[in-house]
Design a protein around this nucleic acid. Structure first.
Lengths: 128, 128
DNA sequence: AGTTTGTTTGACCAATAGGTCATATATTAA
DNA sequence: TTAATATATGACCTATTGGTCAAACAAACT
């Protein structure tokens, strides 16, 4: 595994701009190390970017993504804190299950659309 | 099935504001009928709102939701048009499958977080 | 030496998706 | 009749999520 990635390597891999990566840094989602002023992204930073992009695809806001990322690095602190994390995890899981249900429903409706189109096309071939 | 819903009934059912429903109308996503100036929402309008909210939960923009809704009311037109619709349906399905994959991955990571928390909590009970 | 390529910061700009507020009208209840 | 509730339009405002551009510096290639 590589020790560092440059900012441009990550922009190419994830198809985002340098502006976007710097924005995520400003927002506290990532914290690449520096050599001089230049950012160096470690594998852990790259993994974070991957998780951020996943969150984006699912429609989570930056704030929500920050929250999720916080959970990932969590299991420390006293019992009360840990229980709160468990609760938030359960909440997020609820949201994700809802999204999954939304996806299944949308996929089913798109199936119906495609079938209607295909039928219509077949009909046209017969009629012509 | 009821013939009409008032705007307030829909805001309560979907937990959105009247401003939002009017915004969706401006954007051409819904087109409730009028009695005088007052909007009356038919079951078909209500279904559209439901589909819009589903799209929102999945992180689709208004433009994307408009596109999806267009597909739903589509199967008419000549063969070329129908084929284009089929293509767009397939494209959307690709996006939805990606989202579903993202969800599965995130759920798995959250499972790991919860397990780590629970283990940590058990550990604390033993140590104390 | 000069050019290309990558990088930095900072400033300003812009689209999306509504929120908020003012003003007005309509219906209904007390 | 008066007050409360629902609704409408229009104007302005706002937060989020970056895009775009300028000016500067550094390393590497030719």
């Amino acid at each position: 595994m590589r020790e560092f990635y440059t900012i441009t390597e990550l922009t190419r891999e994830f198809e985002i701009s340098t502006r976007t990566l710097r924005f995520y840094e400003d927002e506290g989602l990532i914290a690449p190390v520096r050599r001089g002023r230049t950012r160096l992204f470690r594998p852990a930073d790259r993994l974070l970017v991957k998780q951020i992009m996943r969150g984006k695809r699912l429609g989570f806001s930056i704030a929500e993504i920050r929250d999720i990322i916080q959970m990932y690095k969590a299991p420390q602190g006293e019992a009360g804190q840990l229980q709160k994390i468990v609760d938030r995890v359960e909440e997020k899981r609820g949201e994700l299950r809802q999204k999954r249900k939304d996806i299944e429903e949308t996929l089913a409706e798109l199936d119906a659309v495609e079938e209607a189109c295909v039928n219509r096309l077949a009909e046209m071939r017969v009629t012509s």
